[in-house]
Computed example of a mutant assay.
Amino acid sequence: MKPGKKMDSSLVRRLKYVRKNYFLYLLIAPALLLTIVFKYVPIYGAIIAFKDFNTIKGILGSEWVGFAHFTKFLSSPNFGVIFVNTLKLSVYGLLLGFPIPIILALMINQVRRAAVKKNIQLVLYAPNFISVVVIVGMLFIFLSPTGPINQLVMMLTGEPIRFLSNPDFFRTTYILSGIWQAAGWSSIIYVAALANVDPELHNAATLDGANILQRIIHIDLPTIKPLMAVTFILSAGGIMAIGFEKAYLMQTSMNLPTSEIIPTYVYKVGLQSGNYAYSTAIGLFNSVINVILLVLVNSIVKKLNEGEGLY
């Protein structure tokens, strides 16, 4: 058969398949449309990063400046501090926060009474539904010089600790409050994966004399190992993609040396100062770093995890 006829027959088979399963494509159509409109169409705006953007002339009418905005950011005196702050906040948050949902899921999985298990999950998941604004408000109340935590500190040392105005305490406060808020909700995916473990494996291991820790190490952890690899890659790939809301709300004039990160800097330069081209260049630089980290971490995990990675 000639190559042209093979291509024609293959196209006919595909069209028949689409016609037969058209309802599946209708189901995915809204999600695909939303992804295109809100994820791919805005990419066009990234052109601003390479132009001297003027709101009157528009994106196409503005003059090209190439990599001038990127050079300006990389050579600015604030670059080193902002980049290091962002990296430290992200890396520390990942290293400290990644194991906690796994540990919680393993602990929840050991609870056998369904009613008790549901109540524990309810308590653990609840913080995720609290607004960031409310979380920061709670931090200001509990960690203020006259708050309950400092009352205990004063009983022991006689002097309060200024958690939110001391730059040395900003990262610890930010990361620990983030872990408390998200750990329970992040454990859901691991709890669901552990629910698929065959109970007979645990029964057989118990008969062989295996204790709880041995069953977790040799049965539960191997089950969720591929899932752990994927979630770690995704988390590491978005290591620079910190939301600005919480960091911005926790900022004070005294903790800026550690609280000023790329997203808050972009917000101030772009929306508050109106320098849209410069802020777009900074955001694009941040995105490129994320992509590089995603590819790098995925390749490392694939080597360590016997070829299993995100792609």
Rank of each mutant, 00 (worst) to 15 (best):
L304C: 08
F67L: 14
I161N: 07
G307E: 11
I120Q: 13
T206G: 09
E159H: 15
Y125F: 12
E63N: 13
I300V: 05
N196H: 04
A46P: 03
L296R: 04
Y311E: 09
A247K: 03
Y44P: 01
L271I: 11
D8V: 15
W64G: 03
L227H: 14
A49W: 00
S287H: 06
A29L: 15
G137K: 14
F244Q: 15
I108R: 02
I103T: 09
T86R: 00
K118M: 10
R171V: 12
Y92R: 13
Y40V: 11
L201R: 05
G209R: 08
L74Y: 12
I233W: 08
L293V: 02
R162A: 11
K20C: 09
A277H: 10
S279V: 10
L284M: 13
G184Y: 10
Y125D: 06
I82S: 00
T173Q: 08
N255A: 08
P257W: 01
I219T: 04
Y265Q: 02
T55H: 08
W185Q: 06
F73Y: 11
S144D: 06
M1P: 15
L304M: 01
D208I: 02
L60Q: 11
I82M: 03
E245I: 01
L152D: 07
K88I: 11
I292Q: 00
G66L: 07
L294G: 00
N109R: 01
L156Q: 09
L139N: 02
L164N: 14
G93S: 10
I28Q: 13
I262H: 07
L249E: 01
E245S: 05
A193L: 11
I239G: 05
I179K: 06
P226A: 07
G237L: 02
G309T: 00
